[in-house]
Computed example of a mutant assay.
Amino acid sequence: MRTLLLFVFLVQTHLGFSQEKFNILDVIKFQNELNQEYADAKTSPLMTEDLATFKTLDFFPANEKFFVVAKFVRTKKEKPFEMKTSTDRKPMYVKYGEVFFTIDGSNLKLNVYKNIALSKQEKYKDHLFLPFSDLTCGNESYIGGKYIDLKIPKANSIVIDFNTSYNPYCAYNHKYSCPIVPLENDLNIEIKAGVKKFHH
């Protein structure tokens, strides 16, 4: 009986913390799914001429350093605002919280947002939007920054894996309207993770 209880405890402990540990298989899965989306004419944001020769997106090597368990602070009484985009479109967002974390000894903070219209759909009711830019933008990364999709955490911490950051569709095709990264989400370090800029 004692052995069984110990086994159950170990399983629960493993399951409870497994989502807060870096797993390169999760990064590979993300990359494969993104490549499949971009290779499919029905779902790809690529222009016709780029799609014809597309094989794979260019990714930074997966790096555990850019997997962080951040402190999450819910910000209440925030007023909805029109987020600027690459076109005249101005979707309504609300700042949902702040995340605090450390990379290479630098204490960093980002804001996370909720798309008001999108959150009314059952599928996206727990969806959070994390746009950011860093010192690689305009060089190895897309000049307009990158995005990460998150889910509302149940506690005061949230996993952010920059290895799963991706480019706005505008990085591939000018016909799209993409949110512009707010100035407060510009990081003064290099985040060498996720999708690199698109090379024509």
Results as ranks from 00 to 15, higher is better:
1 M>L: 13
2 R>T: 15
9 F>Q: 09
11 V>E: 00
13 T>Y: 04
14 H>F: 15
16 G>Q: 10
18 S>I: 12
21 K>P: 01
22 F>M: 00
22 F>A: 09
23 N>W: 07
25 L>T: 14
26 D>Y: 05
31 Q>H: 12
34 L>G: 02
37 E>W: 01
37 E>V: 11
38 Y>D: 04
38 Y>A: 01
38 Y>Q: 03
41 A>S: 09
42 K>R: 11
42 K>W: 03
42 K>S: 11
43 T>V: 09
44 S>Q: 05
50 D>A: 10
55 K>F: 09
56 T>A: 14
60 F>R: 05
60 F>L: 11
61 P>D: 06
63 N>A: 04
63 N>L: 07
64 E>G: 02
65 K>G: 14
69 V>F: 02
71 K>R: 12
71 K>M: 03
73 V>E: 13
77 K>R: 09
77 K>V: 06
83 M>L: 12
85 T>Q: 07
85 T>N: 07
86 S>E: 05
87 T>L: 04
88 D>K: 12
90 K>R: 12
91 P>F: 11
93 Y>T: 08
95 K>C: 11
99 V>C: 02
100 F>D: 05
100 F>Q: 08
100 F>Y: 12
101 F>D: 09
103 I>H: 00
104 D>E: 11
105 G>F: 07
107 N>V: 14
111 N>F: 11
115 N>L: 15
117 A>K: 15
117 A>W: 09
117 A>H: 14
119 S>V: 14
120 K>A: 15
122 E>R: 12
124 Y>K: 09
127 H>C: 11
127 H>Y: 14
127 H>M: 14
129 F>T: 07
133 S>Q: 04
135 L>T: 11
135 L>H: 04
135 L>Q: 11
136 T>P: 00
136 T>N: 10
136 T>G: 01
137 C>I: 05
137 C>G: 04
138 G>H: 08
139 N>E: 15
141 S>A: 11
142 Y>G: 00
147 Y>I: 13
147 Y>N: 13
148 I>P: 00
149 D>K: 08
149 D>W: 05
149 D>L: 07
151 K>T: 13
151 K>R: 14
152 I>R: 06
154 K>M: 10
155 A>C: 10
156 N>C: 08
156 N>Y: 13
157 S>P: 00
159 V>L: 06
160 I>L: 12
165 S>C: 13
166 Y>N: 05
170 C>T: 15
177 S>K: 08
180 I>Y: 00
180 I>K: 01
182 P>H: 02
182 P>G: 07
185 N>R: 04
187 L>G: 01
188 N>F: 02
191 I>Q: 00
194 G>H: 03
196 K>N: 02
198 F>G: 02
199 H>M: 14
199 H>D: 09
199 H>G: 07
